[in-house]
Design a protein around this nucleic acid. Structure first.
Lengths: 115, 115
DNA sequence: ATATTATATGAACTGTTATTCATATGATGA
DNA sequence: TCATCATATGAATAACAGTTCATATAATAT
């Protein structure tokens, strides 16, 4: 492939990239969700919840953080639909929101594994 | 399930969570990689690269950012093994590092889709 | 060699965010 | 209703990260 061909190919890729780019809003939303799971403290919470729902207290013990910090972090995760929760008496039980979150965690682990 | 059974179940889950928790280092590494893709500007770069390798200039056009900003962001992505690059003459061509990254992007899009 | 093109880097400024402390809300049982 | 347990929230501080500007490096062509 000579220089001109190369150049042409790249221009076409650029056009294709621009065409298939998600909207600003969607990119922002996806980025926000990645951001939610991109803090070690919050990612640890997710691994703690991977085995099933836990109350706030137990999450705190699992990740070794105080009640307030955990509560703030859980809120961020919940606002971004990474976790969900239900009340059971005095306690609130948190769990992973859906399969996609677990899928991303798996991918992340695999991505880390192969280096 | 009565109160005591519930309590016992939760305690066991907590123990299981603590046991299966990845190491501090691995969590930090995974979080760092999520963080790399959690900025709208960088996520846009990834969508731009999803169709194939592009030079820095074209990435800049695709995401509408200046050369310096793009270069800085590409460095972060490269340091976190999200993208890789190769030199071709004066240009440096960037591309998605591996399948896991695309997988995470797919999961993110699906996760966004189902609400 | 030197001019030009393409990319990378460093420093500074700005905005963002995690954690902590204190306090508020909500639920249960006496 | 009151005391207690569990969780949530608000404000403040302190650390971090993205963008920009200026400049440096790297490769090519004349």
């Amino acid at each position: 492939m000579d220089f001109e061909e190369e150049e042409k190919l790249h221009e076409e890729r650029l056009k294709a990239a621009l065409a298939s780019m998600p909207s600003e809003g969607d990119v922002a939303e996806m980025a926000a969700r990645f951001k939610a799971i991109s803090e070690p403290s919050r990612l640890k919470i997710l691994f703690a919840l991977a085995g099933g729902e836990l109350c706030v207290d137990h999450v705190g013990e699992a990740v070794n953080a105080n009640q307030s910090a955990v509560s703030h972090q859980l809120r961020i995760l919940k606002d971004n639909r990474i976790v969900k929760c239900r009340r059971l008496g005095k306690k609130v039980l948190y769990s992973i929101a859906d399969e996609h979150v677990l899928s991303m965690m798996r991918s992340a682990r695999e991505h880390l594994g192969c280096e």
